[in-house]
Design a protein around this nucleic acid. Sequence first.
DNA 1: CGCGAGATTGAGTTCTCTCAACTTCTGTGG
DNA 2: CCACAGAAGTTGAGAGAACTCAATCTCGCG
Lengths: 266, 266
Amino acid sequence: MKKSSRQTNFVSESDNTPEEKQSRKKTACKSEPDYVECDACRLSPLCSPVKVGDHTYDFTGKMVNRRHYFKRGEMIFKQGEKAELIFAISAGSLKLIAHVKDSNRVIDFRIPGELIDVCSLNEGRYAYSAQALEDIYLCEIGKETLNDIASQIPEVQGRLMKVVSQELINIQKSSMLMHGNINSEEKIAAFILNLAWRYQNSGYSSRKFKLNMTRTDIADFLGLSKESVIRLFKKLQQRKFIQFKGKNVNIIDVEALQNFVGIKLI
Amino acid sequence: MKKSSRQTNFVSESDNTPEEKQSRKKTACKSEPDYVECDACRLSPLCSPVKVGDHTYDFTGKMVNRRHYFKRGEMIFKQGEKAELIFAISAGSLKLIAHVKDSNRVIDFRIPGELIDVCSLNEGRYAYSAQALEDIYLCEIGKETLNDIASQIPEVQGRLMKVVSQELINIQKSSMLMHGNINSEEKIAAFILNLAWRYQNSGYSSRKFKLNMTRTDIADFLGLSKESVIRLFKKLQQRKFIQFKGKNVNIIDVEALQNFVGIKLI
DNA sequence: CGCGAGATTGAGTTCTCTCAACTTCTGTGG
DNA sequence: CCACAGAAGTTGAGAGAACTCAATCTCGCG
């Protein structure tokens, strides 16, 4: 399994085979980003060849603009702009921001393998902005092209259906998890658990990952103050559920964490 | 416009024509529930005839079990049961409950015109239970039948796609609205605004409607105490945003409410 | 190596919860 | 149609949680 080669670096990594360690070293010096496996990407059904009759067509080349680079801090798109593309994150992470009442609010984060703006397939305008939390690579599909092809080829229509309904399931799960938490500690715990589950979905370790956003972003997203976020991280650490070292997260006791939050995802 | 005939009864209704008043009187004596207009139902794309070549087929009869009655308090389905049906509410409202940690948590509400369990189209088990908040009527579609037909008839596939992606948009909007509220008053305001928007989507008044759930249900859903819910209702009333009379809601100043919450939906 | 953004800590204030008492509403049976 | 019982809603007081503000620390980047 290539699994451990996609874990984020963290504290002591004793569970790697020497071979894997070496393969990481090769690419470790700055360089090559940690691209998500295409198989784990939510867009993959639309990135693989389609059989029509006797022929096999590869729409990938036509539709997908692959691994478009954006610099850390760069805006991928802005609220109100015409929404013509669907994005999938190939490497890196970003935050979604709603601009309201002359202030901004973080409304979500996206990690490798996840999609942005699948909703409104029938175009429209972006309901929020997207900003890179680090240097990132995005794959892009034009909505119009996609809809055209889908309406002509049932197989593509079916795959699009798969993508959209998977998205629906994921959003629903997330919102179930994030909702109705009694206190802030539960809220934070749910947040971490949610990320863990999503990293797992993208083929990464669900136990160790990096929080690429700032504490302030997290606070903003959860409707807490940044000081509370910090104190609650500490509390969860004292409970021996999670270990925090700077931006690195290490879930020590997943089961306890799940019991604490009250919902089992992983 | 039939609009006012679908408003919930509330305080002083001076904006009805005599004709409309009469037409309500006819059905007012106990009896006939206030069914949602089929046009406003999220399931409608799957309830109207489909043209295939020269023929027009009506799958409604085949697929949809219409207006199945459930008594107030009755469980429509229970968490963990095999999920074979998609439901649309024709009249009445219900709550969705997740059973966790030997306690239950209200995770959402559904009003007329809305769908239940569209997600996991590829069946699976119910992730939560559904309980009627009042006497209700549900339309039901078997998932397997639906998938079969959809896979054979592109037009149906396309319509199903429309239903699912609309659902995705709605959930996303709701979760944007409900998320990251700084304090409980904003949270409650967002909750009311969310319901208003949803009632509007179903062709009802967005200004006047009824909260069929208990204060305890609302509290549970929002992660507040029932006492707080009551006090915050009062606060919003003092601000002249919303008027509460028992279960009846009357939004007095939509704009102010939107500014207060910070997101414009309606 | 120094700067600045981000992270952390402490103190005091405000908000929300809990508990308990009380009122109002609703549905049922006489 | 009324009386009653239980459920739901409301109110107040005190405890605990989370926020704000301000000071300080840390780490990554130029």
